[in-house]
Design a protein around this nucleic acid. Structure first.
Length: 486
RNA sequence: GCGGAAGUAGUGUAGCGGUCAUCACAGGGGCUUCCCAAGCCCUUAACCCGGGUUCAAAUCCCGGCUUCCGCACCA
C-alpha cells in the first residue's frame, strides 16, 4: 500500500506536483503541477473527454468568475454556507451547529436572523474564555470578490463548473437543434474556501473539475443500453455491500435512475482505462443527509487510498432543479417541446475531480522493486512519455544514431525523450520512476545491423527490433510498442 | 477551525548555544564498449519567515506561515 507521504515525496522529487508559493512560506490548499504532472493530467483529461466525445457530447468553456445572481438562483449562496459564531471577547470562532448540538439544542437555525433570535434567549458560552456568544455570521464556502459592491456587480469564484452549462442551456439546445438527450461537458477550475485542505491534491481550494451535464427527456430518457463490463463493488444507502456489474445494478433497481446507472458505467469505464479498476474503486450511494441541495440521488466513485475511501467522481441526479431555478430567476425559457408536450429536461451529472484522480492514479501505480527502486506502473495511454531513446554510450557514433532515431520519431510522436547521461541502468531506473513504459536502447550492435533494444518497464524484458520498423510504426508508437509485449 | 508533533540542499536526514552546518541519495562535468540506481575524480546546493534573549542562535523564548497525526468539516 502506498502512503500519501510516499506518493507526495516522489511527486515533489520528480516534478509531478509541489506546494504552491513555497518560497514565500506556502499557502495551504494550493498545488502547482510540475512538468510531468501537466502531461499526466492532460492524458487523464483526454481519456475523460474522448469517452464523452464518442457519446456525442459537446464541450464549452465559461468564466471562473460569476455574478451573484447565478448563485442566488443555483442555491449556492444560501445553502453553501455554514453559520458561524464568534466570541466577541476573545475572538474564538465556532461552527454554530456544533456549539448548539453540544448544548443539547437539536433545532438548528437556518439563517443569521433566526440564530440571533435564538441566542437572545439562551446562553451559549465560549469554550475558551467563558464569555457569552452573541455574534453570528454567515461563512460561505464560496470566495467572494468586491464584497462591498452592490449586488448586481458582486462577483464570486464559481464553486463548480456546472452552472456555466445550465445558464447556457437555451443556446446549447439551439446549437444541438433541440434534440435530447444532450450531453454538455466542461473542463475547468472550481474554487471552495475549504476549512482545512489536506493530503496534497485531495482537498484543494482551487481544483480542476471535469463535469458533464446530461440533459434528457424523463419520459424518453435514452441511454437504455449498459454493456456488460467488469464486476464492481456497490455500497448502497442501506450499507449492504454488493458485487455485480453496473448493468445488473441498473436492472435490479439498485441504482434507481437508469440514466444515472448508464453514467456510473461510463465512469467505471474511464477509470478502468486509466488504471483505476476493480479492487481500487467502489461506488457508494450518498446518505439522505449528505446529499447536496440540488441532488435527489448521488453515487460516488471512490478510490481506496491509504486504506480509506476517497471520493473522486460524483454522479448526481440533479433532476430539473437547476434549469427550473434559472428559469425562475432569469425568466429564460428552459422548456423543450416534443410534439404537443412541453417539459423541462432532467439532468444527470457525472463530475470528475481531476486532481484527486491524478493523485489516485499515482498512488495505485507506485510499486517498489526488491532493490528499493520505485516504478510507476502507468498505462501507456496516460504516462507522461511513451518512450525514452537511450544511447548505450555517448560516443563512437552510438549517440549520433540514437539522436537520429529520436528526431525521426519526433516527426510523428511528441511524447518521447532522449537521455544520454550516466549509466544505462541509472537511466532505466529514472524512466521507471516517472512511469515511462518503454526504453529504446541504441548499442554497438545497432551500428552494425540497425537494430535496437526495446525494454519494457514492468517486466524489464527486452526485444530487439529494426530501426526501420520502429520508424514505420512511429505514427502509432504507443500501440506498436504495447503490441511487442502483449 | 481546535489539540498534539514537526519544519536544515531537489529528496531523506545529523547537529539541540560557539561546527568551514553532517551524511546519503538525486543533480551537473569527466574517466571507464557501460543493458538494469556499479566504480573513481571534480562539482552545484540548505538552517520556513519575523521579532526577542545572549558576547554568540539552526539550536532557547514569542508570534506568523506550512506540513503531519487526531477531532471537526468535506454541499
Amino acid at each position: 500500500m502506498t502512503t500519501y507521504e510516499e506518493a507526495i515525496e516522489l511527486a515533489k522529487r520528480r516534478g509531478f506536483f509541489w506546494p504552491s508559493f513555497s518560497i514565500y512560506g506556502g499557502q495551504s490548499g494550493f498545488y502547482d503541477y510540475g512538468p510531468l504532472g501537466v502531461l499526466l493530467k492532460e492524458n487523464i483529461v483526454k481519456a475523460w473527454r474522448d469517452e464523452y466525445l464518442r457519446l456525442g457530447a459537446i464541450f464549452i468553456d465559461t468564466p471562473n468568475l460569476s455574478p451573484e445572481m447565478v448563485f442566488r438562483a443555483s442555491g449556492h449562496l444560501e445553502k453553501f454556507s455554514d453559520l458561524a459564531a464568534r466570541c466577541s471577547k476573545c475572538g474564538s470562532k465556532y461552527k454554530l451547529e456544533s456549539l448548539l448540538k453540544k448544548a443539547g439544542i437539536a433545532d438548528i437555525p437556518t439563517d443569521v436572523k433566526q440564530a440571533n433570535n435564538l441566542l437572545e434567549n439562551i446562553s451559549i458560552r465560549c469554550e475558551k474564555c467563558g464569555a457569552e456568544i452573541k455574534e453570528v455570521y454567515d461563512f460561505n464556502l464560496m470566495f467572494a470578490l468586491e464584497k462591498n459592491e452592490k449586488e448586481a456587480s458582486r462577483l464570486y469564484l464559481r464553486p463548480e463548473t456546472a452552472q456555466g452549462i445550465f445558464i447556457n442551456f437555451r443556446l446549447l439546445s439551439n446549437y444541438f437543434r433541440g434534440k435530447l438527450p444532450m450531453a454538455v461537458g466542461q473542463l475547468g477550475k472550481g474554487f471552495r474556501n475549504e476549512i482545512s485542505p489536506r493530503n496534497a491534491l485531495i482537498r484543494l481550494r482551487e481544483f480542476y473539475q471535469g463535469e458533464v451535464e446530461v440533459f434528457y427527456d424523463p419520459e424518453k430518457p435514452g441511454f437504455a443500453d449498459i454493456p456488460v463490463f467488469e464486476e464492481t463493488t456497490f455500497l448502497p444507502m442501506d450499507h449492504n455491500e454488493k458485487r455485480m456489474t453496473v448493468r445488473e445494478a441498473s436492472n435490479s433497481g439498485l441504482i434507481r435512475n437508469p440514466v444515472l446507472a448508464h453514467f456510473v458505467f461510463r465512469t467505471q469505464k474511464i477509470l478502468s482505462s486509466i488504471g483505476l479498476g476493480d479492487g481500487v474503486i467502489r461506488f457508494r450511494q450518498h446518505e439522505k443527509n449528505e446529499l447536496a441541495h440540488y441532488s435527489s440521488d448521488c453515487w460516488d466513485a471512490e478510490a481506496k487510498l491509504e486504506n480509506e475511501w476517497v471520493e473522486i467522481v460524483g454522479i448526481s441526479d440533479r433532476a430539473s432543479y437547476d434549469l427550473k431555478r434559472h428559469a425562475e430567476f432569469s425568466g429564460e425559457n428552459m422548456v423543450i417541446t416534443d410534439g404537443d408536450r412541453k417539459f423541462i429536461p432532467s439532468v444527470v451529472e457525472p463530475s470528475f475531480g481531476i486532481d484527486r484522480t491524478v493523485l489516485s492514479v499515482i498512488m495505485v501505480s507506485i510499486y517498489t522493486r526488491e532493490n528499493g527502486s520505485k516504478v510507476l506502473k502507468l498505462n501507456t495511454s496516460i504516462a507522461p512519455y511513451i518512450a525514452s531513446i537511450l544511447p548505450l554510450q555517448k560516443k563512437d557514433g552510438v549517440d549520433v544514431l540514437a539522436k537520429d532515431i529520436y528526431s525521426s520519431i519526433l516527426e510523428t510522436e511528441s511524447r518521447i525523450q532522449y537521455d544520454e547521461s550516466g549509466s544505462i541502468g541509472r537511466r532505466y531506473a529514472r524512466q521507471d520512476e516517472v512511469g515511462t513504459p518503454y526504453c529504446i536502447t541504441v548499442d554497438y550492435e545497432s551500428l552494425e545491423d540497425r537494430s535496437v533494444t526495446v525494454r519494457e518497464r514492468d517486466s524489464t524484458k527486452q526485444v530487439r527490433i529494426s530501426t526501420d520498423s520502429l520508424k514505420q510504426n512511429s505514427g502509432h508508437l504507443a500501440t506498436y510498442l504495447d503490441s511487442l509485449f502483449a
